[in-house]
Design a protein around this nucleic acid. Structure first.
Lengths: 191, 191
DNA sequence: TGAATCATGTAATAGGTTACATGATTCT
DNA sequence: AGAATCATGTAACCTATTACATGATTCA
């Protein structure tokens, strides 16, 4: 049993929040800013079938109260496990270098599924990898900037600025979760 | 004759800068920060064959001076045309919403292929579309933020911050190209 | 001489895109 | 009654990934 596609994990994450039909999932994907995913039926229904074949989701009801067919899907415990494994994976350099979208998708589902402590761990390791990655890019720019066209150089700078904005963001987010986790620990101690 | 994949355009752009073999293109892709592309032979060689079938590139030499085979590839005029058409396409909302990587790839090749005036036009229309897009996201956040998890909200904010950093960047880049284009116009007048 | 790298490919597989198909139901 | 939308799919096509294959050449 090897990894799913990003769409597969996105569907697992959405179903963790709420049981839904394929049609509802399509609407969620196309109606929210996370909707850079294929909301086309030709992508979603085959993806759902694959999840079902791997026993990660199950059809809960083919409820037709008014008569309209609607297959409600829900995560199995294996599905929750696979989702958690994906979310809990360490942040790698390859992730920050070329799979930022996947990182943000993971983060969006994270505190509901793994809790605040794990989310804080994720943010800290994301921050660490970003702090490693940005100097690699700036060093490349210093070394090869002179050989590049103006727009090539600017395109690279745009990437660096984006990563720097992300670093700022992780620091703010870490602050928020630190407060939350600290509060919880106090509560636990006072019990 | 319909559109190529992003990898196809990336290869055209690289070949516009300099004739190269498939192997060299692989090295460029894997050795530069633009290397989030597939540098695997299973992607590049078929992509090159497709470009050749469409007469966008041509084998210049099977030069074997020392004996080693090396197919040098170069753009045909049709290839330059296709590259220019891709670069000159207007920036759409769909582009800023889900194809930022393609936009930056286009920009990186732009001033060499289309010149500074077209690059300035591109930057202005990119800025305009970003100015439209950010309010859409913030409005979504205002309306649905209360129903979202903390990490979901933060993930969305991360996206917004990234776009705002890009707006800043476009403004700086516009300033740079305005100076350049202005200088050129002065020169032309004095002739 | 053996290892690394140059240099180009192919085959199996999987997944996404586009377009089409189907039928029920709500709305006007 | 006709249009829009609900709801679920299928089929053809294309492309990327992964892994393998091949042979030459440089280097230690």
């Amino acid at each position: 049993m090897q990894g799913l596609t990003l769409l597969g994990y996105a569907l697992l994450g959405l179903l963790h929040g709420k049981n839904a039909s394929g049609y509802e999932l399509r609407k969620i994907i196309s109606g929210t800013p996370m909707g850079r995913f294929s909301n086309s039926p030709g992508a979603i229904y085959p993806a759902l079938r694959r999840l079902e074949e791997r026993k990660l989701i199950r059809v809960t009801a083919i409820a037709e109260p008014g008569g309209r067919a609607r297959r409600a899907l829900r995560l199995t415990s294996a599905g929750v496990g696979e989702l958690k494994r994906w979310l809990a994976a360490p942040v790698s350099q390859a992730d920050v270098a070329s799979h930022t979208d996947a990182l943000m998708l993971r983060f969006a589902f994270m505190d509901c599924v793994l809790g605040e402590t794990a989310t804080l761990t994720f943010l800290r390791s994301l921050n660490r990898e970003l702090q490693v990655h940005v100097p690699l890019l700036t060093k490349y720019l210093e070394r090869h900037g002179a050989d590049m066209s103006v727009s090539g150089r600017l395109a690279l700078e745009s990437g660096i600025l984006g990563y720097e904005a992300q670093i700022q963001w992780t620091e703010r987010a870490i602050g928020i979760y630190q407060k939350k986790v600290g509060r919880d620990e106090k509560k636990r101690k006072s019990n």
